[in-house]
Design a protein around this nucleic acid. Sequence first.
DNA 1: GGTTGAAAATGTGTCAACAGTTTTGAGGGG
DNA 2: CCCCTCAAAACTGTTGACACATTTTCAACC
Lengths: 232, 232
Amino acid sequence: MDLQDAATGERRPETLGEEIFGRILELIYSTELAPGMVVNESVLATRFGVSRGPVREAIRRLQGIQLVSREPFLRARVVSLSAQAILELFQMREALEGYACRLAAQQMSEAEIDALIADLEAAHSGHQPEGARFDFHERVVRASGNSRIIDSLCGDLYHLLRIYRRISGAVPERKELAFTEHWQILRAIRMRDGALAESLMRSHVERAGRHVLAQVPETSSTDAADAEKRAS
Amino acid sequence: MDLQDAATGERRPETLGEEIFGRILELIYSTELAPGMVVNESVLATRFGVSRGPVREAIRRLQGIQLVSREPFLRARVVSLSAQAILELFQMREALEGYACRLAAQQMSEAEIDALIADLEAAHSGHQPEGARFDFHERVVRASGNSRIIDSLCGDLYHLLRIYRRISGAVPERKELAFTEHWQILRAIRMRDGALAESLMRSHVERAGRHVLAQVPETSSTDAADAEKRAS
DNA sequence: GGTTGAAAATGTGTCAACAGTTTTGAGGGG
DNA sequence: CCCCTCAAAACTGTTGACACATTTTCAACC
């Protein structure tokens, strides 16, 4: 039943609230808690064998990063993004990730750029170790050096994107196109052309957004009902 | 006092946690809880006449929007931004507010633009009603129509900026320069030149950031000691 | 038979007490 | 005089119980 212990992998006991936060996150990723479903404090508390306090804190944190929506006395629900919300999410990513790309073009060292190029080509050739998957976007964002932008993109927004990334997921021809675009961005970074790198990254993110939007037509209203039905 | 309370003026206390959140926010704004000071759950609980539960929730929310820093069993502290952190904060604002400005140039109606121009000039002439202060940046951001960017800029980041805005605050010649820049941005929006509007907004925010940075040389390390001393 | 109303059931908000951890400070040794 | 040790104090993390709000159920009534 408690098969998530391996996921944390940490020997050091943090607080229960933190652990429960991660556990609920796993439930959301695994769609056991699908968008639109209610998040019941008592049920989760008994399931995890803890009191309602830590569960409550975890839900508040999930609310903080906009993964669950909640109103004062109403039940909390996993967010179900409308098409408009997804569009806005990708717009924000465009703004932030584009700017991060510009910063990366200014601040990365030659060695870092070479290493990133090598990793990109290795991943494309299929030589990537399956354990640590290569994530081009995360690498670029972290290279920006702006920890606030890094936290925002790799933290809050990343969780939201991950829910809907599974939908687009493995589409072969899209993958090939993404590689080409990644390579163009890297070339701009190597040329230290921040404006071009930012522009290319924006176009790349916008294309990805349109791709996700095309595969998620109208799930916002139906999700709640479907989820509710499956729960019974 | 600014975002929600002033909107309706009379807001029934929804939950205690929400109210305590606002109360603590006021304490931080009034520098009674200055950057670097510890935020004690029990003390605040007895002060507000409630249990530790709501206070705890409020502090978690403050942690969520990065206004207090906290580690598992250590005491929570009001964040004390280093020069580097302030720089990163303004960079993120550059990215987001610039993009919002571009969106505004695409989406605002002619009437909205005219209204904003009128309000800007009225505020500059001193005809602004003191109750509802004119905030150019907030108006432009809200005109972008992207609720996620709006929430981020007018919510989380706004609270952080507000702590350090009081420092720069009322500098006459800066105010005149800001008006000129605001007016140039609006002209670009009216010409529907999104790229120019974004570029101008970025420069404007970057200038503001340098201005704040110049007035906050090295307070990050001293704040904690000063605050600690005043508390005794 | 459908609708309205109250009461039970479900679930969230709040509280006071207990457990575990970090910090403080006094006492003893080097 | 400084440093180390160790226990008490202070604080955070967690729990179970109680109070209040919302939703649902179900029976009386039109």
